[in-house]
């Protein structure tokens, strides 16, 4: 089989109440590109986009981004574990013109804590519909305060004008890539440490054995 023509496949999820504009946001980012489509039994939609990622040491890599989206089943509060599976980063979206969707981000965060691959996954908070200024119910200060409390980067986005759409998703990608980089480096360091004093390692493990 031919090897894929990208270096990384990254799966990101868009979460948030229905009607906050998750689908429009992803639609804007992928220029309307709509691949593969709807997986009916799981209730998932996804879009794809190729981007170039430049690491902190200037290395460029080709990233195949998969952006997963719900298909309305969040209205019934039924996201299956399949939806969260293998997701590496999360775009948590609320509607700046809906107080309730902002309040519900707390619920989404606790859902994430229990369903994501770890308790502190990479999340970017997006206040969407920033173009509807006259309908705004959530101030930037309040959203920022909340983001700060939870250690989340915060963007005000507009799927209608494209404002900050690319920025927020690329910021999330950056967090995911950095985490991956750190994990890989750590593993490498651990491996190296193990190789250097491998004999000692195996000795100490046998001496700590319960039967020992």
């Amino acid at each position: 089989m031919a090897s894929p023509d990208y270096d990384y496949l990254i799966k990101l999820l868009a979460l948030g109440d229905s009607g906050v504009g998750k689908t429009s946001l992803l639609f804007n980012f992928t220029d309307g590109e709509f691949n593969a489509g709807f997986i009916a039994t799981v209730g998932i939609d996804f879009r794809e986009k190729r981007v170039t990622y430049t690491s902190r040491n200037g290395e460029k890599s080709k990233v195949h981004l998969q952006l997963w989206d719900t298909a309305g089943q969040e209205r019934f509060r039924s996201l299956t574990t399949a939806f969260y599976r293998d997701a590496m980063g999360f775009l948590l979206v609320f509607d700046l013109a809906s107080e309730q969707s902002f309040l519900n981000t707390r619920n989404w965060l606790s859902q994430l804590e229990s369903h994501a691959y770890c308790a502190t996954p990479d999340i970017v908070l997006c206040g969407n519909k920033a173009d509807l200024d006259e309908k705004r119910q959530v101030s930037s200060e309040r959203a920022l305060q909340f983001a700060k409390e939870h250690g989340l980067p915060y963007f005000e986005t507009s799927a209608a004008t494209g404002e900050n759409v690319e920025e927020s998703i690329m910021h999330l990608l950056d967090l995911v890539m950095k985490r991956m980089d750190n994990t890989v480096n750590k593993q490498y360091e651990e491996e190296k440490a193990y190789k250097l004093d491998g004999s000692q390692n195996s000795q100490s493990s046998s001496s700590s054995c319960f039967c020992g």
Binding site: S18, F38, A40, T41, G43, D45, A71, G72, Q73, R75
Partner: peptide, 9 residues
């Protein structure tokens, strides 16, 4: 089918 969402079983 709810609003503009795809249908669900």
């Amino acid at each position: 089918k709810t609003d503009d969402d795809p249908p669900h079983s």
